[in-house]
Amino acid sequence: MNYNASSGARHPAQKPSGRKKKHVGDPSTLGTYTPLPYNPYAVPPVYDEHSAGPPPPYGYSPQDYPQQAPLYGQPQGNYGQTPQGFSIPSQLLNEPVVTNMAMQYGQALVGSGKQMVDRELGKYIPVSRLKYYFAVDTTYVTKKLGLLLFPFTHSDWSVKYEQNEPVQPRFEINAPDLYIPLMAYLTYILLAGLILGSQSRFSPEVLGIHASSALAWLVLEVVVELVTLYIINIESSLKTLDLVAFGGYKYVGIIVAVLLSLVFQRTGYYLGILYFGAALAFYLIRTLRIQVLPEGAAQHDPYGNNVSSGSKRRLYFLLFVAVIQPILMWWLSAHLISVPSA
């Protein structure tokens, strides 16, 4: 007899098995217990049979849990891998999308840090202004050194302006810069160490005192010039960094004079100091005259008042700046060629 869905009759061959149906809660239906894989980073609850609380789930025992949970920061097993054996950090780092995001985040972080540093330094140091004084190239440096050593052959001392701002030094040889003074100062210190070593007078302490003394004299010179401008009430376009640059040019003449002393002894040194001191004084007078003492300055103002005394103060300031240069050049270098008697 075939099975009829409407009547629910069975086929003759299909007979009841006669076995008793087991309940779901029968322990024999659970089969063999397979422990869970060990996770070194999991902190399971510790079961204590003497403490209050529900017992562990059916089929588990306290021995299935680790005796002691791993300490924080102490890896167990394969460090950097999940229990399944996959190294997630290395896979993520190899993904191009993750790498690009990390690079973009790093660039944004560096850019924000640079802006913060520039903003904080700008409160105390004119960073944007310093960029102007270091805007030089090889051609400018070569021509400017020739101008400092031989200024008597130069004729045009005017400084070009663009949108009420002076042109960068690499485009204007008459503009002051800080690159040559800085390099000349460092070269002067190294040359002093070389000469002191050849005279058996070298020591790190002496070289440090020599470097700090030279820098202190430059700072003192600039401070005296600024105070003089304020006291005699001279209005000019000179800035503090301009005075630092003009005062730092003296190290170029000192270097050449000291090198001459190595060949021609004291005679070469004194001749070098006299010539390069006079050359630097001439250079400063012609350069500062345009900014401190303009050409064709009127002796009377539009109301007929005599202003010749103001022009005289400006002229005295120029002479003061020019005269102290040879004196400072001698003071900073004379001790390098004088060997103390035994």
Rank of each mutant, 00 (worst) to 15 (best):
N4D: 14
G8D: 04
A9S: 12
Q14C: 05
P16I: 02
R19P: 05
D26W: 08
P44V: 05
Y47N: 01
E49Q: 08
P70Q: 10
Q74G: 00
I88Q: 10
I88T: 10
S90W: 09
Q91A: 15
L93S: 13
V97A: 15
T99C: 08
N100L: 13
N100A: 14
A102G: 10
A102K: 09
M103A: 11
Q104S: 14
Y105S: 11
A108E: 14
G113S: 12
K114C: 06
D118C: 01
Y133W: 04
A135E: 14
V136E: 14
V141G: 01
K144R: 10
P151Q: 13
S158A: 13
Y161N: 09
Q163D: 15
P169N: 12
P169I: 13
R170L: 12
I173P: 01
A184I: 03
I195A: 01
L196Q: 11
Q199N: 11
S200L: 07
R201L: 09
E205C: 00
H210I: 03
S213F: 07
A216K: 01
V222A: 09
V223A: 11
S236I: 04
S237F: 06
L238T: 00
K250W: 02
V256Y: 08
T267V: 15
Y270H: 09
G272F: 03
F276E: 05
Y283F: 13
I285E: 12
T287I: 03
E295T: 05
P302I: 10
S309V: 06
G310I: 04
K312C: 07
R313I: 00
F320T: 00
I324N: 01
I327A: 12
W331K: 03
L332N: 07
A342Y: 11
